[in-house]
């Protein structure tokens, strides 16, 4: 919930579970910022907001991981992207915003 101004920034409703919102998740690790798309309901993941390429979960036993550093997508290094981060990723024209 680190998004500024209490806005939900999302790409679209989740095509997998139907109820979730596909949102931009940020992981900051080893001075590297990784952005990916994560459904806030079913935890399905995509590499970018075009949502063509899924990021697979390694196994049934493993929690979904950041594709870069392999830490948990809910770890302390992660947060929902704010609008500045979405711009830096070049994804601004792919997202929608609503008040939380």
């Amino acid at each position: 919930m680190n998004s500024q101004d209490s806005k939900i920034i999302y790409v679209e409703s989740c095509p997998i579970c139907g109820d979730g919102l596909c949102r931009v998740r940020i992981c900051v690790s080893n001075q590297m910022v990784t952005g990916f798309i994560l459904c806030d309901e079913c935890e399905a993941m995509w590499t970018d907001p075009f949502m063509q390429e899924r990021i697979p979960t390694i196994s049934e036993e493993t929690e979904p991981q950041c594709p870069n550093c392999e830490q948990s997508i809910w770890g302390k290094n992660t947060h929902w992207a704010n609008i500045g981060e979405v711009c830096l990723l070049g994804w601004f024209d792919r997202v929608q915003m609503v008040d939380e």
Partner: peptide, 25 residues
Amino acid sequence: GSEEGHRLKHIERHLEDQPKRPGLH
């Protein structure tokens, strides 16, 4: 797990409407 820290806390969100949330809930 989940954003809320625990799955029970997460599914508890579905005991109440979130009228401002985009899409379906």
